[in-house]
Amino acid sequence: CSEYQKALKADGEGAIAEKFKMGEALYKEGKFAKANRLFAQIVPDYRGKPQAEKLMYLYSNSFYQMKDYYVSGYQFERFASSYPKSEKLEEATFLSAKSAYMLSPVYTKDQTETKEAIEKLQEYINVYPDSEYASEASKLVQELDFKLEKKAYSIAKQYNHISDYPASVRSFDNFVFEFPGSVLREDALFYRLDSAYKLAMNSIEYKNSLNGIIPLKRNRLKEAKEYSESFVKSYINSKYLEDVNAMVADIDEELKGYSTKS
């Protein structure tokens, strides 16, 4: 350790090369934090020199290994733009994107980082479709995409939970439109129906509007009925089927009243 301290404090002619050598050794041993401190000292000295390419790669990766993903993402990106001919280019691009992935928070919080990570990973996949990391990258993209889906789904479901049914229906509509292939689609369609059903059941009969009196409840029942049909069409063996059938029966019962009246 004292040798390390000496190297840290060293100054003068041979010191820079010595630091590089020692940093590299420490890096190989897996002591990334220590290596990183040495690299940080010599990065300015190597700027523009041929060894800089290797140094910058090690320096960037040491941040990654230290789980300082914000800096590693930036450093790898810089590496990729500074050394477009490097053999490590592909790996650096990937690690830059993966750093962004690591920064993505849980789905219930702001997803700015998630979107950035998706963009970066997607760009990586587009540029290097056959690389060794491509499958991992697409797996990560999937995972991040799911976060966005889960977020939109949870918000729409919360509107259902707090009994704001119109907001819930609208949000699930947007969800189905935005994430057509989502694994949450079945749940989304069910809760859209559930919201529409509850909205219709608790609705007032008529509403005054500019275009005259609207039969509000009837319209809402019809809408709920449509949602139930589209649900059954897609998921005939759904775990929700029993609930759906009960709702449909209720809706039909209510609608019957209108058909006899008119």
Partner: peptide
């Protein structure tokens, strides 16, 4: 956007402008 600490549900329930 910008809720790095606070969970969505805490915020969305307070919002008075809802979809639709």
């Amino acid at each position: 956007v910008g809720n790095d600490k606070t969970n969505d549900h805490v915020i969305y329930r307070e919002i008075r402008t809802r979809p639709g």
